[in-house]
Computed example of a mutant assay.
Amino acid sequence: MTTPAFTLRFSPTPRGARLARRLASQQTDAWGWSYGSPVHDTVELVVAELAANAVTHGRVPGRDAELRLSRNTDGTRLRVEVSDVRGERLPVPASDGGPLAEGGRGLALVAALAEEWGVAERPGGPGKTVWAVVSCAGPQPVGPTGGALDGLASVPGRAGQGVRQPGWDSPARDAVR
């Protein structure tokens, strides 16, 4: 059985990354996770971070990046994939630059919010795909105001680079268990 998927090619620019985030937000709402819900906000943030990394560190002029969202058949997990053409530049979680650091928190946020994440070769082309799986069942990390980022400091990172999940990265990518 195939599952719904959403695919978007976007320019490797800040404007393209913003478009990817906004359209992922719209698609997540269309799939039933309404704006402002923990799942919606988590997916939107993960897409924003991965798309920003792709346009910052994976940019090659004239070559698009790609966003792909898919969900498993029972709707309990949603997979975010962002691909770029710079396969030699793998994401590396930044060392703690302190509270005044201007960057380096993106992958830490992804690791904290995603059930797991990793990196794979880009299917069908040069480059890499950075992916994250967001749990859509059970409680999300929420705090007193109900936002997905509230209480983030208390959520330990769970996944690491290169972790593979059966059923999600098979050659028949739309055939998800």
Rank of each mutant, 00 (worst) to 15 (best):
T3W: 14
A5E: 08
F6Y: 14
R9D: 15
F10R: 02
P12C: 06
R15P: 04
A17M: 08
A17P: 13
R18C: 11
R18V: 09
Q26I: 06
A30M: 09
W31A: 00
Y35C: 00
P38G: 09
T42A: 09
E44N: 13
E44H: 15
E44C: 08
E49K: 07
L50W: 02
L50Q: 01
A51Y: 06
A52K: 05
T56G: 13
V60Y: 15
V60C: 10
R63P: 03
R63D: 02
E66I: 01
L67E: 08
R68I: 07
R68F: 01
S70R: 10
S70W: 06
R71C: 10
T73N: 06
T73W: 13
D74K: 13
T76C: 05
R77T: 07
R79Y: 09
E81P: 09
V82C: 08
D84Q: 03
R86D: 03
G87F: 09
E88Y: 12
P93N: 06
S95E: 15
A101W: 09
G103F: 05
A108C: 10
A112T: 01
V119I: 09
E121F: 01
R122H: 13
P123C: 06
P123Y: 12
G124C: 01
G125T: 09
G127R: 04
G127C: 04
V133K: 00
V134K: 03
C136W: 02
C136G: 02
G138D: 00
Q140N: 14
G146E: 07
G146M: 10
G146S: 12
G147W: 15
A148Y: 12
L149G: 00
G151H: 12
Q161N: 10
V163S: 11
V163D: 12
G167A: 00
D169C: 07
A172I: 12
R177P: 14
